[in-house]
């Protein structure tokens, strides 16, 4: 009797989590594939239309632009924030006294919400006496609203993206640097290696798994970018800053084309899936970060 009870205990213990996971992750995951082949909207359950939505997506200018914008955002936030994060981590690792203070300050933007970050930068870019606007204007550089000009809106959003993601790279790199034994640097110093040479021949190669990890994590996050775009520009002007998630929200919850929005979600799913899988395959099973 007792052993029978014991054999169902594990299922009871995981069931609260498993049920919620089933209802709000697993079933939606399967369902979104089905939905993507239907023309379901808010008014009707819709019917099977085969690959109709997919064909539509490939000729949907706003969606194609969102892919382009999201890719630009990814490319131009991930690399700069990783490089800046690495450089800052390296300097912080020189055992200077105030390192924790610097680290806290530089990580601070990552604690703020996307909306709060957006508010801050709306003000910074604002033509009503905003600091960046006034700064640029005092050099005669620009008198336009950077977030409303088609040429500058995406770069302006990307700057914000870099500002919020530096902290993450820096923290993870700092942890990685602490794992590199000091003897390696000392040995190199005896051989007469310069700091720069040590950086490129010891630091960079030994940090490779960590670099890879940060790359994957920030990549996945950047393909999901939504809050700052939605709040700062709403995807405009003329779709110049719209992103994949922004299009999902617009199609699904403003136009109420659930089926089509599900199709766009499949694209996001595939992109994130591929990067996660790459991470899973290339990361050693017992992670050596700790």
């Amino acid at each position: 009797m007792k052993s029978k009870w014991n054999s169902i205990v594990p299922y009871i213990l995981i069931s609260p989590y498993a049920i919620i996971y089933l209802v709000f992750v697993l079933i939606p995951l399967i369902w979104v594939f089905y939905l993507s082949f239907t023309n379901q909207n808010i008014f009707s359950a819709g019917e099977w239309i085969g690959i109709g939505n997919y064909q539509k997506a490939f000729s949907d200018n706003a969606f194609l632009l969102s892919i382009r914008n999201t890719s630009f955002y990814w490319l131009f936030t991930v690399l700069p924030s990783m490089i800046i994060g690495l450089v800052l981590a390296v300097f912080m690792n020189t055992k200077i006294k105030l390192a924790p203070v610097f680290r806290a300050i530089i990580y601070l933007p990552a604690v703020m919400s996307g909306v709060a970050v957006s508010m801050t930068w709306i003000w910074l870019y604002s033509p009503i006496g905003g600091p960046i606007y006034s700064f640029l204007q005092s050099f005669g550089l620009s008198s336009k609203d950077l977030l409303k000009d088609p040429a500058t809106a995406l770069p302006a959003v990307i700057v914000v993206g870099i500002w919020i993601s530096i902290g993450f790279s820096m923290i993870i790199y700092t942890a990685g640097l602490q794992g590199i034994p000091n003897e390696l640097y000392e040995a190199a110093s005896i051989d007469g290696a310069t700091s720069i040479r040590k950086f490129f021949q010891i630091t960079i190669p030994l940090l490779r798994p960590i670099t890879f990890f940060i790359f994957i994590m920030t990549t996945i996050a950047s393909f999901q970018v939504f809050d700052i775009v939605y709040v700062m520009t709403g995807g405009g002007p003329a779709n110049r800053t719209t992103t994949i998630v922004n299009e999902i929200v617009r199609r699904g919850f403003e136009d109420f084309e659930m089926g089509y929005a599900a199709t766009l979600a499949i694209f996001l799913l595939i992109i994130v899936f591929v990067f996660t899988l790459v991470n899973y395959i290339f990361t050693p099973k017992e992670n050596d970060l700790n």
Binding site: L29, W31, V32, I248, A265, L268, L269, V272, F273
Partner: peptide, 15 residues
């Protein structure tokens, strides 16, 4: 872990 929350928001909303 591979499922971004935004990708399942449509069916989640219907549920």
């Amino acid at each position: 872990l591979m499922v971004p929350p935004q990708a399942v928001i449509i069916p989640q909303f219907i549920i």
